[in-house]
Design a protein around this nucleic acid. Structure first.
Length: 553
DNA sequence: GTAGGGTTAG
């Protein structure tokens, strides 16, 4: 029987389902062994067969003909400017087409649209698309649509992507496998697996055959929801259609096992892959390494890393980040810093994730000076910290009671034209409360709407906690009512904070009333609240009838 | 010129 490990993610406790920084968290998984059984059977079944030949259908690149520049070269130039974040130059190349008497092709426009989408400039991409339609002599093709669909998905706008798909159905340019697979994948990433499966059936009804990419997206989606049986069904389904799982499909399975804590099974998957000539790659090994780190088996993780090193040029910045994170989470800061030092020797550039991981761990270990040094080093190395990295340091400063430095950093952030969302203000309000500056915290809280921000459950919890610590329990209760009225449901944390506030303020009767309300709502006392209640019980200050209530988990 | 897998963070 396999161990059931439920990894709770620290999903934002906001009332809306989406968090500010699009954390696509894993839900609790209900493990059973069926997936592992499938993988075993799969390999057993195909063991005797020879490996499939590697597909090599690359066509020769088109040779530039005649005088330069021609259309192909101009397209390439546009693409280069797009990737260099020089969209203005890209557009001026388009202008050159007309000067040279050349007619841009659909691919020219597609390249431009793709460029704008890569830079998150959806409006301009849509503008080109609309001009193509209006212009009449260069109609969008299936790639144009596919590119736009991808753009909408990248923005997390699945419904716009589906609308575009519907528009394609009406016109001459029918949706193809790529358009469907793009949306299916995006829905799966948002754990809207039922919608993805519906689109999948629809696609098949239209006679569009899925491929390994479509199946891998779906399997990833169901794995994220812990639906092992569904994953097994999909695997059987694809194999029955002669579509075979490849290195990416197996990596999805392996990664899911790792996140479930079943790293032993994940290791077995690697061995089976090798036997079957499906060579595990950097991502496969990185995922396995993370699995070992999650189990605290750092030595095993290091072994995998050394294996990758021994195979030559198999490690990338991503795999370094995973091992650095493993060291950090196990308070092995020296080893983590060593790895950071190693990276440049391998020609790898530490990125914002590398530094964020290290900065966060330094902060959590109270080494705020080291965190600040790393933050400066990151900038000196040309890595501009993003708003989230700033948030990590801001939080570290607040938690380490360096409020004035934190405020300074906040001003710096304001000057950077960052999109300062509620997360930043939550950190700051918490920092002010921790420093005992309830008035300032309250001012900031009340000023949120004027900044176009809405408090989430976490904001309320922080503010309520601050008020309780300041002895302002009545105001805390007012906020509890306010959050309900504003459609922001209180969670177990909210109740626990106020109950503790009441007890600490010797308002036992009010505490008892709220405990009852909390239990009725399906929440229970956490460890520190329970301790306080037990203390009261010992002093006969509480009705013993409450005891069974607080014990219920 | 379009689709799939691995890391951080209140």
């Amino acid at each position: 029987m396999l161990k059931i490990i439920m990894r709770a993610t620290t999903a934002a406790s906001s009332s809306s389902s989406s968090s500010c920084w699009s954390s696509r968290g894993m839900n609790c998984l209900h493990s059973d062994s069926s997936l592992v059984v499938f993988v075993n059977n799969y390999f057993a079944f195909f063991h005797s067969q020879s490996s499939k030949p590697i597909k090599s259908t690359r066509t020769q690149p088109e040779q530039p003909k005649g005088d330069l520049p021609n259309i192909t070269n101009l397209n390439i130039l546009i693409n280069c400017y797009c990737h260099l974040n020089q969209m203005g130059f890209s557009l001026s190349v388009l202008g050159n087409f007309f000067k040279l008497g050349l007619k841009p092709k659909v691919s020219t426009f597609n390249t431009l649209i793709n460029g704008f989408l890569l830079k998150n400039r959806v409006a301009e991409a849509a503008g080109i698309f609309n001009k193509m339609i209006a212009g009449g002599n260069c109609q969008p093709n299936v790639v144009t649509y596919g590119t736009l669909v991808k753009g909408f998905c990248m923005k997390g706008n699945n419904s716009a992507a589906i609308q575009l798909l519907r528009k394609m159905e009406e016109g001459a340019c029918k949706p193809d496998l790529v358009a469907y697979s793009t949306i299916i994948d995006s829905l799966c990433k948002d754990t809207l697996v039922d919608d993805a499966l519906n689109l999948f059936s629809e696609m098949m009804c239209k006679g569009i055959a899925p491929n390994v990419i479509t199946y891998t997206s779906l399997i990833h989606g169901v794995c994220k929801l812990g639906e092992w049986k569904e994953a097994t069904r999909l695997l059987n389904d694809m194999v029955s259609r002669n579509i075979f799982p490849d290195v990416r499909t197996f990596t999805v399975l392996l990664d899911t096992l790792c996140k479930e804590g079943m790293v032993g099974e994940a290791q077995t998957v690697v061995e089976m892959m090798i036997e079957r000539d499906i060579e595990p790659d950097t991502v496969t090994y990185s995922s396995l390494m993370d699995g070992y780190c999650l189990q605290g088996r750092i030595d095993e993780a290091k072994k995998v890393f050394e294996l990758m090193l021994s195979k030559g040029s198999m490690v990338d910045a991503f795999s370094y980040n995973i091992l650095i994170n493993g060291f950090c989470k196990h308070k092995m800061m020296d080893e983590a810093m060593m790895l950071l030092g190693e990276m440049s020797g391998k020609g790898l550039v530490p990125d914002t994730v590398t530094y964020s991981t290290l900065v966060d761990s330094c902060c959590k270990m109270g080494k705020i000076g080291d965190a600040q040094k790393l933050f400066s080093k990151m900038q000196a190395c040309g890595q501009l910290p993003d708003v989230q990295t700033y948030a990590i340091l801001l939080d570290g400063l607040c938690k380490n009671r360096q409020l004035s430095t934190a405020m300074q950093l906040f001003r710096e952030m304001e000057g950077k034209r960052f999109d300062l969302n509620i997360v930043i203000y939550n950190i700051l309000i918490d920092g002010l409360c921790l420093a005992g500056k309830i008035e300032s915290a309250r001012d900031l809280f009340c000023g949120l709407s004027s900044r176009g921000l809405q408090p989430n459950a976490r904001t309320y919890n922080i503010m309520i906690k601050g008020l309780c610590i300041g002895g302002l329990t009545s105001e805390a209760v007012k906020l509890l009512t306010e959050m309900e009225e504003k459609g922001c449901s209180p969670d177990g944390y909210t109740y626990n904070i106020i109950i503790r506030g009441f007890i600490n303020n010797n308002e036992t009767v009010r505490a008892m009333g709220l405990i009852q309300q909390m239990v009725e709502r399906g929440f229970s006392a956490d460890a520190s609240t329970t301790e306080l209640i037990v203390n009261l019980l010992c002093k006969d200050k509480v009705d013993p009838a409450l005891l069974p209530l607080i014990k219920r988990e």
